[in-house]
Simulated scan of single mutants.
Amino acid sequence: MKRFIPFMKTDPLVSVIRLQGVISATGRSAVLNDAGTAQMIEKAFARGKPAAVALAINSPGGSPVQSSLIAARIKRLSEEKEVPVHAFVEDVAASGGYWLACAADHIWVDESSIIGSIGVISASFGLNELIARFGIERRVHTAGKDKSMLDPFRPERAEDVARLTSIQAQIHAAFIAHVKRSRGSRLAENADLFTGEFWLGQTGVDLGLADGLGHLKPKMKDLFGEKTRFAVYGPKRGLLQRFGTQIVEDVTGTMDARAAYARYGL
């Protein structure tokens, strides 16, 4: 009852935001994006005057834009509310998942957590020879000679690959700048951290990509006291999802997520 009595000191509160899944602009329930996480992030910083916000991250990455939007919202609210943010990596915070972790003031990992993969990837298939084998003719009509760039049903063009590589380089540069702003002098000198390679927990700590080994509740209690309270915020499931009317969509999302996690052996 003491938290409701005026002028009486209350136990510290830590707001926990669960960020789990592939990062994508699409609206499936299994993904993370700015639209789907905005409300819970805003509430986590606003309710109960938290002493800190803890991010529980388990994400293999995804959309660089959505990663940037979510991270920017967390960083902005942290500065506005003057609330420190701690990121706790569960299985993986790689690629866009690590982009999210870098929104925090401190990053904590498990010994077996996977972090890093600071790079940009684009994957597709070349199907032009397959359709030719079956006598299928691809007919595409465009206004603008590059409108069908990277069409998988046409032979790959060197100029298309050059454009894609240029775009990837710009996104990669933004990712690197974000990591450097967040981690600063904590990053290991003379270490090549931005090749897309990923590492396990302690190695990530040694490289300055994380601050130490630690789990959410014990670490927060160590920092704020044994009586620290926790309020957990996660994405809400809609009415249709709760009654199972999006089964096909969820199955598709699960398959996509498994493919993304599989890149890291998970």
Rank of each mutant, 00 (worst) to 15 (best):
G126I: 15
K147F: 13
V120A: 08
V83I: 06
S113T: 06
H172C: 07
F88M: 03
L187K: 02
R183T: 06
I115Q: 02
I114S: 12
G144D: 04
S182T: 02
A173T: 04
R133P: 06
A104C: 05
E156W: 12
Q170S: 08
D91R: 11
I118Y: 08
N128I: 09
A169F: 14
S185Q: 08
I107D: 02
V120L: 09
S113I: 07
G144N: 08
V161Y: 01
T165W: 12
L150Y: 07
R138V: 12
K145I: 13
L187S: 05
R138H: 13
L187D: 03
I131G: 04
S113K: 08
R154L: 15
A174C: 03
P152N: 00
K81R: 13
W99Y: 15
R138T: 12
V89W: 04
I131W: 05
R181F: 10
S117Y: 12
E159W: 09
F153N: 07
K145V: 11
R154G: 12
L127Y: 09
L100R: 05
F175N: 04
E159T: 05
S166M: 14
V120H: 03
K81T: 11
I136R: 01
I176Y: 01
W108A: 07
F134Y: 14
R157N: 01
H172L: 09
A169M: 05
M149Y: 10
G126Q: 15
E80L: 08
E129W: 11
H172T: 08
H172K: 09
D151R: 04
